[in-house]
Nucleic acid binder design. Sequence first.
DNA 1: TCATTTACATACACTTCGTATGTGAAAAAT
DNA 2: ATTTTTCACATACGAAGTGTATGTAAATGA
Lengths: 201, 201
Amino acid sequence: MAQKRAEMIEETRAKLISAARAAFATVGYADSSMDELTAQAGLTRGALYHHFGGKKGLLEAVIAQIDAEIFGRLAVIVEEAESTWDGFVQECIGYIKMAVEPEVQRIVLLDGPAVLGDPSQWPSQNVCIVNTRRSLQKLIEEAVIRPVDPLATARLISGALLGASLWIASADDPRAASEKAVQGFLVLVAGLRRDTSPAQP
Amino acid sequence: MAQKRAEMIEETRAKLISAARAAFATVGYADSSMDELTAQAGLTRGALYHHFGGKKGLLEAVIAQIDAEIFGRLAVIVEEAESTWDGFVQECIGYIKMAVEPEVQRIVLLDGPAVLGDPSQWPSQNVCIVNTRRSLQKLIEEAVIRPVDPLATARLISGALLGASLWIASADDPRAASEKAVQGFLVLVAGLRRDTSPAQP
DNA sequence: TCATTTACATACACTTCGTATGTGAAAAAT
DNA sequence: ATTTTTCACATACGAAGTGTATGTAAATGA
């Protein structure tokens, strides 16, 4: 019952992040009141400022947590893939599916960039960009794709995935939209491949 | 000297939008004070609420204006193109260049989506998406590219361009980054083409 | 000419944020 | 074991900023 001090502290941090996630996801960052948010966690703004330095710091922590979760989920997908190329494609498709979730969309894709600026500069490093970049580099080494700049192309691709996700989320029929987006994506990335095989049927 | 009433009104609107553009572009939407902004235009918040209904409405008006300007600039590029495909590619590249401008980036690409939500739902309709969609449709009709879903693919592409722009803007060497991004982009959209010709050298 | 609408300004109440300061408990030092 | 220091938070306060409600003078219309 008697918890260690470090555990208590970690728990308060977790409670704040959890409350913030809920608040940010539902009403957005700008309309989230720190007083309300902290009260929801059974604390006050004092704790928030102590641990995160302010509202922005809390957002960073929330995004880092979500990013880590996405990273874990994507890792599973990549491990199950048969080839580097397949892993790359599946990972991108997986990212689209995750980015459609309201929480991810609102916090990481919309509010995040507006408040914290370009995602590639975040401490948590936007998972999508980093993963895609690594995949591309490997694919170039394996001579599967043309020798494009990995970072630039990773940014292009992650942007494309983001755009698709926003569209899917606000579409009348998200399922159908998702399928169309994936097909379009496959056609686009087919351009990367050295062999000029047409996009898969 | 004595201006017509309608002209005066239009002038106040223009002054407000102009002041807002400057404020939003420099300190961002969230940190722009309506009191300051309106004072800069020689007015008060009363005028702002009267004409635009609030801060959000003002942002919408600013984005609409910027979007219209971009539209005009892109139209010139497209007109000068030799083919539909060339026009499409040049338009996209032109969009990247414009999206790198700090004003466009901060207001339209970062704050816009966070405050107003998905760009495709905006009244001003994000220029990039609409134009790209139209180009794609034409290219499909001309049988230049594969029969992808025009809207879905337009969202993918506009997202990619946005991602590239954000990256270029925050890169150490924006000029070099821009070139790399364009090359990557060309490789990607080459995947759309029916003929399997490799990306241009 | 008088009523009404329009285009703004002013005033006020409310929320929110950052900081400065306070406090009790744990950890460290002696 | 006692004292001192640090830490993890809470409380209090001041400064902005926002939305609304109201005021007003000029322009419009009958």
